[in-house]
Design a binder for these strands. Structure first.
Length: 810
RNA sequence: GCGGAAGUGGUGGAAUGGCAGACACGCAGGUCUCAGAAGCCUGUGUCGCGAGACAUGAGGGUUCAACUCCCUCCUUCCGCACCA
């Protein structure tokens, strides 16, 4: 017979709620712990990913409560977004009603898992009480010049019918629907995240408790590269052509320069040249290719000579100007100096088009690079090299810099060029400003009014929130639905009262989630986005838990917002999340669970078969939190069996425990406490299983059983509350302090010493822990089992690791 | 190409310089039962009857001792990328 999990779970979920056991209050004299899991999009159903994410968080929260911390563990919903709107189009329902229904279901599902949330702090981003503050924050950014509108080429998803941020484009496709992203010229709102690029990069170093992977990804994304802009000049007109390089140490090896086909100087330099027609044809061909195609043709680098020449400012050498598709207008200056000997792409291009090469960095390894002179210019012939040498070495063919190590020359050349006015030390960044306009209904309206006389006018703070009208038409045919609601669009200008129009785009939903962790500190505040005093107490988040898919998007934006609030003086810290745990995905048969693959395991079905406690236990036991978890329908039986095994102990409690069991207990307390503290739940559970096995071996008394149940309670809370109550306790088990081990029980009367001969295990001895070295040596050498291994070979050394091991080397 | 993570039994995984495979799943045997299920007990890396030998992606190195540290390489996953 299995234990009655269904009754037990329902009973305790009800009791916890009645007692508001998890409602948090700030109290400065108590140590706080803010534990947060990434809030979900309210799809209506929770999936295994949610179960895993929130179970990890819940165990940590309950553990910290029992350790005496004042714990804040809130939950809310990232409720704006396209699925609600798509559902509205499909079912002719309203996004608002649909979303609230979903939230209701979702809450129920979360409650069925027994999570310890402070539901009084629940927040939904689609409530006007929340998104009012999105608008407030937007206006503050607008005042600081951090929110601005500009026309440019933007990413456009033809299926979602809206623009996308760079961070939302994955493999040239839309992050949500994977449609191929198109480029479109549009006037859109941007947030100047680039203003914070230095700090966003620099402060990554402060995040010791973040996974390296996430930091590396952000580092990559921000993409700082330091180099020099070198001013080449056109031979004929003397016009400046700046090129950007990070390898200024190779400047003396530049044998041609290459312009992007879109480079503005191209049309001027080909005019009247014999090559004009050919170049124009080439440009036309390239312009037809999309970014993706251009990037994918990795092997062949196509290009044409322009008929013009440029002058290298470091040696006044005249070199040809080419146009090629491998140079991109979007990066650097859209022009490069080509050094075929020390850049592989330039090398391939030069070889293809028979362009000259010159070695300027000599490798210190053998064989040496060929430095054969050709026409007295230090040129290497085309067939002497098989690839570019991109490593470090010594400068050669580099005038006054000859003989210097190239890394040193890099600094000196940069300084020299700046002094001589032929270059400028410069840093390029990959990070672009964040496009937040979306041509969608179900989001926060951007609080801006366009007046024919006053121009762009921010909505006055007193008029916030700009509420979403309820009766927007959803056709799915494109164009912002808000634009079709007359009474929304037509307003009078707040400044001059002339007839004006409202902005009809809404904000990207990542705006909403960039500061929700602050809102949880004072979720009902009606005078500010958050109460600075409350935020000072609770923030930063001590432990944040969520999926790796947000490594750049949400986590970068949240860091940006936090720094913005710091600049406004609203918070006194620059990073929102002290520790970050990115949990691994849940797989089935080696693949991510997804509807399209049809390999979804519904948490509900598991709960009704085994109960939430078994489900919790299994997702924690099957793998460490950071790694992928392979779902196994059979293995979950093991977790269920374990709970039943613990359940049966209560029927057979003894009067007095065996000392061997007491020893196991104290060992287990030490292990489980350390492991839960380090989020090593799988081994913590193994420790509890071992203790349970020991109980079966020796028989348990009440004292041992009590501690077992207390330690199990963060992991299987309903189950343990029930046992706790049956043991005669009236208070929740959460009010019980976490057990402590007594070190005296960890001291063994005898220890087993492993005896090795030449590093191989040959025997074992039981001795007292503090045995004298000589006595131990004597004992070991008397061991009959070792005789065949030692024979009468001379003893080279005798290594003793106290209480553990002896190694005899012969 | 650059950056990150990982590679251990049939499976999930444990061990961060000191007994490789904890704890589970699975499998096999036993016990209980009229029988089955559940429970309980035992066994279970490979080869070998055995003593023992071999085994942590491959190969080297450091060390009395290496899954663990160092070097070279291979494979898989993830991020970025004609980034100058």
């Amino acid at each position: 017979m299995s234990y009655p999990f269904k009754e037990i779970e329902e009973k305790w979920q009800k009791l916890w709620q009645e007692k508001s056991l998890f409602s948090a209050k700030s109290s400065p004299e108590k140590k706080k712990y803010y534990l947060l899991e990434m809030f979900p999009y309210p799809s209506g159903k929770i999936h295994m990913g949610h179960v895993r994410n929130y179970t990890i968080g819940d165990v940590a929260a309950r553990f910290k409560i029992m350790q005496g911390y004042n714990v804040l563990h809130p939950m809310g919903f990232d409720a704006f977004g396209q699925p609600a709107e798509n559902a509205a189009i499909k079912n002719k329902s309203k996004p608002d009603a649909w979303t609230h229904k979903c939230i209701e279901w979702m809450e129920k599902e979360l409650k069925k898992m027994g999570f310890s949330y402070d539901w009084e702090r629940e927040v939904s981003t689609c409530d006007a009480g929340y998104y009012k503050w999105n608008q407030w924050i937007f206006l503050k950014m607008f005042e600081q010049g951090l929110a601005y509108k500009k026309a440019s080429n933007v990413n456009w998803c033809p299926s979602c019918l809206t623009t996308l941020a760079n961070e939302e484009v994955i493999d040239a496709g839309c992050w949500r629907c994977h449609s191929k992203v198109e480029q479109k010229e549009l006037e859109q709102w941007y947030l100047k995240i680039t203003e914070y690029k230095e700090r966003l990069l620099e402060d990554l170093k402060l995040l010791d408790a973040w996974p390296d992977r996430v930091k590396a990804m952000q580092n990559n994304w921000i993409g700082k590269s330091e180099g020099v802009e070198i001013f080449f000049r056109l031979k004929e007109s003397g016009e400046k052509i700046p090129v950007f390089t990070t390898r200024q140490d190779t400047i003396f090896g530049a044998t041609y320069i290459v312009l992007a086909p879109e480079h503005p100087a191209v049309s001027g330099i080909i005019k009247g040249k014999a090559q004009e027609k050919e170049v124009l044809k080439f440009i036309a061909k390239v312009s037809k290719e999309t970014k993706a195609i251009r990037a994918s043709s990795e092997v062949k680098k196509e290009g044409v000579f322009t008929g013009s020449f440029a002058v290298n400012p470091v040696n006044n050498e005249t070199i040809p100007i080419w146009v090629a598709d491998y140079v991109l207008m979007e990066y650097g200056t859209g022009a490069i100096m080509a050094v075929p000997t020390h850049d592989q792409r330039d090398f391939l291009f030069a070889k293809e088009h028979k362009l000259p090469m010159r070695v300027v960095i000599q490798s210190s390894d053998q064989p040496r690079l060929p430095l054969d002179k050709q026409g007295g210019q230090g040129l290497t012939t085309n067939d002497q090299l098989t690839e570019a040498y991109e490593g470090d070495g010594t400068q050669v063919n580099s005038a006054q810099f000859d003989g210097l190590p190239n890394q040193e020359a890099k600094k000196k050349i940069a300084e020299w060029m700046e002094k001589a006015g032929i270059g400028k030390i410069q840093t390029h960044w990959r990070l672009r400003d964040w496009l937040i306009s979306r041509q969608r209904y179900w989001g926060t309206p951007i609080p801006i009014i366009y007046c024919p006389k006053c121009g762009v006018v921010p909505v006055p703070y007193g008029d916030l929130p700009v509420e979403l009208p309820e009766d927007a038409p959803f056709t799915g045919e494109g164009g912002s639905p808000l634009g079709k609601v007359k009474k929304f669009v037509e307003v009078s200008c707040p400044k001059c009262e002339a007839a004006a129009r409202r902005e009809t785009d809404t904000m990207a939903t990542f705006f909403d989630s960039s500061w929700y962790f602050l809102r949880f500190c004072s979720p009902k505040d009606s005078s500010a986005p958050f109460d600075t005093k409350e935020a000072r107490y609770w923030m930063p988040v001590d432990q944040y838990i969520g999926g790796i898919e947000h490594a750049i998007l949400h986590l970068l934006y949240s860091r940006f917002f936090t720094k913005f609030f710091k600049d406004l003086g609203m918070v006194d810290f620059g990073e929102p999340f002290s520790r970050l745990l990115t949990q691994g995905m849940v797989l089935k048969d080696g693949e991510v669970m997804s509807k399209s693959r049809g390999n979804i395991v519904d948490p509900d079905s598991i709960i009704s078969k085994y109960g939430a406690d078994t489900l919790r236990l299994f997702v924690l036991f099957a793998a460490p939190p950071e790694t992928e978890l392979e779902w196994d329908d059979a293995a979950i039986e093991g977790s269920f069996k374990f709970l039943n095994r613990v359940w049966r102990i209560q029927e057979n409690l003894r009067e007095k425990a065996d000392p061997a069991l007491i020893r196991s207990l104290h060992k287990a307390i030490k292990k489980v406490t350390e492991d839960i503290g380090e989020f090593k739940f799988n081994t913590a559970i193994a420790g509890l299983m071992e203790l349970t096995n020991a109980v079966y071996q020796y028989g348990a008394d009440k004292e041992v059983f009590v501690r077992l149940v207390v330690m199990l309670s963060p992991l299987a809370p309903h189950f343990c509350e029930e046992l706790w109550q049956r043991m005669g306790n009236s208070e929740s088990i959460l009010k019980t302090p976490w057990p402590e081990y007594d070190p005296k029980w960890l001291i063994e009367d005898t220890v087993t010493i492993v005896i090795q001969v030449n590093g191989k295990l040959r025997s074992k001895l039981d001795v007292t822990p503090n045995i004298a070295t000589d006595a131990l040596k004597e004992l070991v050498l008397a061991d009959e089992k070792l005789k065949p291994w030692i024979q009468n070979k001379p003893l080279k050394s005798f290594i003793i690791v106290p209480k553990k091991l002896v190694n005899i080397v012969v």
